[in-house]
Write a protein that binds this DNA or RNA. Structure first.
Lengths: 236, 236
DNA sequence: GTGCACAGGATTGTATGCAATCTGGTTTTG
DNA sequence: CAAAACCAGATTGCATACAATCCTGTGCAC
């Protein structure tokens, strides 16, 4: 059993105590696609399921709202967020801006311990796939990306990448059109090999193409414009 | 009186109702340096000052904690955040990465209405300076940067810039070593002229040098390393 | 049969109360 | 005199209660 000790919630917590536990649990369910976009998250219901008071639930929902994983609608409740196609595009544009340079930085400051951690991520991901746990494999894929950003040791940019990768879980739940697992099989391996050689340029290029590959599996075609009137549509 | 209608809290709100009002008020006080880093923000005290219950105060403090403007210490209370020198450096590195390209995008999609808004920002900033309201001028300087990111119309990156500029208020409060106002007098003017010409490359270069200028006014020398033992220090 | 109005129950927003924790001052001990 | 222990008041974490708002189902009018 490969042990992964990194944060299953992806984003470093700003809350503590039972609230943090609940945030981690809900985040993990979102990243593993057990909680799907649009799901209503009722306070009383969560309070019962997790055996905490509504106070803790509200704090956790507020935290998840700040992470843009949950949308709070005043007087209506909390819902797992549904990023629009526009938002999906922008998230991956931002990832394409930040992650390749972060991969380069990671390659340039790679250590044996960090390589070991990355390899453990890949091993755990494969184990999850072999065990038919696709949700877990998906979450571990995301964590692999975040681990790279931590190795690069630029905490501000890493924080942004955490947010982007976390939101990517929702985007993938909504718009993924491939039947296979998220990240192409050899992409993470190739990245780790580049890191092992300390080859920043290779790492940067591999991350770029890896992200392009992910985007190519998302169906981000715009829905028909709502500016078109019903009359125009019906008159062919 | 030049009216500025943009968000004095810098960061788009994720809370609503009285909580949002309180967040805006506290943020503004932070950006105008009326609330200085390290200040204790007691729940009962804020509750009395703002005439809201502790529930609303706690929600607002949590929101400010998510924005990294406030640090919540469990069982000890909330404090206006004090970014370390390391953090200060990283914030401006991230700004140097994001803002010049955002300025370029803004130049390429500039409209008359947007130019008018930017000019109004500059006018309001000068008015505040002339009236001796340096805190307000400071906040308006920050808002100018955020307005540019909104014109660029990339909402994810704009969101990151909001967070970075917001945090810059704390950094400036702690580390500013110049006696003059924050942004050099002609820098914002020059940017607006580049925007007027639609000159993306010029805008990008001007933003780069503008940020370099800001960093040059910050005292970010590292304190002596704490790895040095007391014995080493005392033995000369 | 369809559309509108209303009522009741469910849920959310917020206030308040109580227990847990911390801090600072005082007392005791060596 | 200095350090440790103790205690009381202040503050924070969290639960619970109540008011406000929303949603859905039912009844009535056309």
């Amino acid at each position: 059993m490969t042990r992964i000790t990194e944060n299953p919630a992806f984003i470093q917590p700003t809350v503590s105590g039972p609230t943090a536990t609940l945030v981690t649990s809900l985040s993990q369910a979102i990243h593993e696609h057990r909680l799907v976009p649009g799901t209503k998250l009722g306070e009383d219901e969560l309070s019962e399921i997790y055996n905490v008071s509504r106070t803790v639930v509200r704090q956790a929902l507020q935290a998840l709202s700040h992470e843009q994983l949950v949308e709070l609608k005043r007087n209506r409740g909390a819902f797992v967020a549904k990023p629009t196609i526009r938002e999906a595009r922008e998230v991956f544009e931002a990832r394409a801006l930040l992650e390749p340079r972060t991969a380069r930085s990671a390659a340039e400051r790679m250590t044996e311990a960090a390589l070991t951690r990355l390899e453990a991520h890949i091993a755990a991901e494969h184990e999850a796939l072999d065990a038919g746990e696709s949700g877990k494999a998906l979450r571990l894929s995301g964590q692999f990306h975040i681990e790279i950003s931590h190795i690069a040791n630029q905490s501000i940019i890493a924080g942004f990448i955490e947010r982007l990768v976390a939101r990517s879980s929702l985007i993938i739940a909504l718009y993924w059109k491939r039947h296979s697992a998220l990240c192409e099989e050899h992409a993470h391996h190739a990245l780790v090999e580049a890191f092992r050689r300390g080859d920043g340029q290779d790492a940067e290029e591999l991350m770029k193409s890896h992200l392009v590959d992910i985007v190519s599996a998302l169906d981000l075609r715009e829905a028909p414009s709502t500016d078109v009137s019903l009359k125009d549509i019906l008159s062919g």
